[in-house]
């Protein structure tokens, strides 16, 4: 890759690259890459863009010259231009030059495509494995080595290769964290994979990129990159499970949770597996993947999930639970933290 970066610098058109990198929000844009894969992808994108800009410039210059120089002028209505049949040399020229340009582009294309698709994990490799399952419209994350299950927020250590194994419970989804790596589809009944890493601690926005139904546009998730030590601590805490509720309201909420929610949701090991695992709910970044993380939004969600995410599987509890009960439930859910 060093060689390509060098040739990029030599390019006078590098200005465009600079211009583009000002584009978009940090943690969300492919143009501000924060991981190895995204960086190399961005380099390749810019490299191909530069070749294409070169082609565009040649075409536009010839084209503009032709339409200005040869437009019909007054007083030469009877002029008949020479009926040129073709020109073998010119035609060969604009056949061969594009072929050369494409070969130049093909070399890094092949090498990087193989590099980025290499998710083979040998025994003893220091990588983090994550099994990701797409659901309409949320993401389930399982760490087989750490034996942890969570949802919506994918926690990873910085600087380590993370191998993501994808599948889906229902329709085809696609797992995309623009700032860290390109997307791969999550297909029902099959597994696909990709790898990514993050240079810096921070939260990166992830989203579904394959039309999956009514709330496709709201199927967000977060990737939280933390230091390797913090990750170790977190995975240990996750295994221990959340601390027990302390306030009276939260305790009441726990009972309501057991009666109403546990057939689908799990806390720790206990509970259903068809809806997001809520063990570390209080530590999440967002309600429903995109709303601000506060009790008000949580209550609105419990009352009528379909209003926030059209087509969401979770039923409305507006008529099932009283406001008091929902308050208690929210207090309980906001007590579910693995942070000590």
């Amino acid at each position: 890759m060093k060689k390509w970066r060098l040739s990029l610098r030599l390019f006078p058109l590098f200005a465009i690259a600079l211009l583009l990198s000002g584009c978009g929000k940090e943690g969300l844009s492919t143009l501000i890459p924060m991981g190895t894969v995204a960086k190399e992808q961005a380099d390749l994108m810019l490299f191909s863009l530069l070749i294409m800009v070169l082609v565009m410039v040649v075409v536009i210059v010839l084209f503009t010259y032709a339409i200005i120089k040869f437009r019909k002028k007054r007083g030469q209505e009877d002029f008949i231009p020479k009926q040129v049949e073709g020109n073998a040399k010119l035609e060969l020229l604009w056949t061969i030059i594009p072929i050369i340009l494409l070969i130049i582009l093909a070399v890094p294309t092949i090498s990087k495509t193989f590099a980025h698709s290499d998710t083979h994990v040998a025994k003893g490799d220091d990588v983090i494995k994550v099994k990701v399952t797409g659901h309409q419209y949320w993401w389930e994350f399982e760490y087989p080595d750490q034996k942890i299950k969570t949802a919506q927020d994918l926690v990873i250590p910085t600087g380590k290769k993370v191998v993501v194994e994808l599948t889906s419970k229902d329709v085809i989804h696609a797992f995309w964290v623009p700032a860290l790596a390109g997307k791969i589809d999550a297909n029902p009944g099959q597994t696909t994979s990709l790898w990514l890493d993050a240079d810096k601690e921070g939260t990166y926005k992830g989203r579904c990129a394959e039309l999956c139904g009514s709330s496709h546009a709201l199927m967000y998730f977060n990737v939280k990159a933390v230091s390797p030590d913090e990750f170790k601590q977190w995975s240990k805490d996750m295994k221990d499970g959340p601390s027990a509720p302390t306030t009276a309201s939260a305790k009441k909420g726990e009972q309501i949770f057991k009666n109403n929610c546990m057939s689908c949701h799990a806390v720790g090991e206990k509970g259903g597996q068809t809806a997001p695992n809520l063990s570390n709910f209080a530590d999440r970044e967002n309600i429903a993947g995109f709303k601000e993380h506060n009790k008000k939004n949580l209550k609105a969600w419990i009352k009528n999930p379909g209003k926030i995410k059209p087509g969401a599987e979770m039923p409305s509890f507006e008529d099932e639970l009283s406001d008091d009960q929902i308050n208690a439930l929210a207090d309980y859910l906001f007590s579910l933290s693995v942070k000590k």
Partner: peptide, 29 residues
Amino acid sequence: VGFIPTFVMGGVTGVMLAVPTADFQYHDS
């Protein structure tokens, strides 16, 4: 005549899209 530069724009982005690993970023965007 307007077709020529416009179509060339569409064509060159087509070549960019042909690069698989970069397409992982472009795809469905």
